Simulated scan of single mutants.
Amino acid sequence: MSLRYSLLLLLALLVTPVQADNLRPAYLQLTETPDGLFDVFWKVPARGSYARLSLNVVFDDSVQEVTERRGGFVNSAHIQQWRVSANDDLANTRVVIDGLEKTTTEALMRIEYQDGTASTHRFTPGDTDHRITPKPSWLDTAITYFVLGVEHILFGLDHLLFVLVLLMLIPNLRKLVATITAFTVAHSITLILAAVGLVRIPVPPVEACIALSIVFVATEIIRGQQGKPGITARAPWIVAFSFGLLHGLGFAAALGEIGLPQSAIATALVVFNLGVEAGQLLFVGAMVLLWQTVTSITGRFPAWGLRLSAYAIGSLASFWMFERVAAFWT
């Protein structure tokens, strides 16, 4: 048995049972009104029904609040809305997400202008202060959404684990290329259809099914070890395409949180998807390179490494599945 299975075991054991994709970001949207003011929408993840993360939006003195902040708890978030006036379309305005430095989450800011242009910025615990630049160019929009696509796949643990268990079943380069291509085509289809509103499916069931897809392939690995190879072992591209449709809906949900610039919808969709593909290829390349490096030094490991890896990943995905079903079932 190849050493890649021991490597996959190590990766599986390093994964702690946390909610995949649960970096629930705070979300700040500034929408320009016809009279030159800006409507502010501020959403913060809630902790139960009466508490939320202690995060607050702080503008510099060039921004004046013209209405009171109003809001409350809605589902799993606390929402505030108010209106402000600003000079020069917010250009050079300083925005701080106070309290973010004390958390492990992030905050997304989106600004929509009357002419249809939009800009997006991501705040992190290490970067809570941002000075708004003038209205973005086409290149600015493309770079922003490409980076968001890369970040989403690399921080989307459930998506990465699905790709990982597929790699555990692929014996040669030809099948690897076919499988990754099938996954790419499938999630690109549903990402685009859902992003433009042609397909509408509730997000919680989709997330539960994404976890189920990992469980299914992990089970297929174990069946193969028992001498009962399933369809995933014989034709992994079929399974990759089928479940790729679900994963595309998950990508679309993330893109929906960010929003699409009305003046560059096609650009944002294409480059976000390209970013997802780039992140995916980085992950696959890193796994292959790591396996080749270690294999050239050590040798082979016993078959139990693959089996234990499948059990570890499948157990984690099962936890996610039941947790996600419980979240929308109750």
Rank of each mutant, 00 (worst) to 15 (best):
S242H: 08
A317Y: 05
F155K: 11
L157M: 12
L191E: 05
G285I: 09
L7R: 02
I170K: 07
A195G: 10
A77F: 14
T295C: 00
F328A: 09
W82P: 05
L3D: 00
A254T: 02
T93I: 10
P261V: 01
F216E: 05
G299M: 10
S54W: 12
Q29M: 10
G285A: 08
Q262E: 12
V84E: 10
L53D: 13
L161K: 02
L260T: 07
I111V: 15
V271K: 04
E257S: 07
F322I: 13
D35F: 07
K102G: 09
V270N: 03
I214T: 12
T330A: 08
L3G: 05
M321Y: 03
V206H: 08
A266Y: 11
F301N: 09
T16R: 14
V206Y: 07
R307F: 13
L11Y: 12
V147W: 12
L289Y: 13
L108T: 11
L13F: 10
T117Y: 15
W42V: 10
L14T: 00
L90D: 03
L8D: 00
L173I: 02
T124A: 14
A268V: 04
F283M: 15
R47A: 03
G126I: 05
L166M: 05
G256C: 11
M1C: 01
R200V: 15
W320C: 08
F146E: 02
A91I: 06
V276W: 15
T219L: 15
N56R: 14
L191M: 12
A91M: 10
G116V: 07
P171Q: 12
A194L: 11
Y5K: 00
A266E: 12
D21I: 00
L157D: 06
R122F: 01
R174T: 15
G275Y: 01
M287S: 00
Q280C: 02
P25A: 14
P261C: 06
V215R: 00
Y145A: 09
R300Y: 01
K175F: 11
W291C: 02
S296L: 04
V270E: 07
D115S: 04
P136K: 06
L167A: 04
Q280M: 00
A107E: 03
V66Y: 11
E257I: 04
L173E: 11
V196M: 13
T330D: 14
A303C: 05
L282Y: 03
A326L: 15
N56T: 14
R300C: 01
Q64R: 13
D129T: 01
A303W: 07
V40H: 11
G275E: 09
L282D: 03
R47V: 11
P34M: 05
L139D: 01
T67A: 09
T124I: 06
A182E: 09
F38G: 01
R300S: 13
F155N: 11
T293R: 06
T267L: 15
V147S: 13
A142G: 14
A286E: 11
A264R: 08
P17W: 03
Q262H: 12
G99E: 13
V203T: 15
A208V: 01
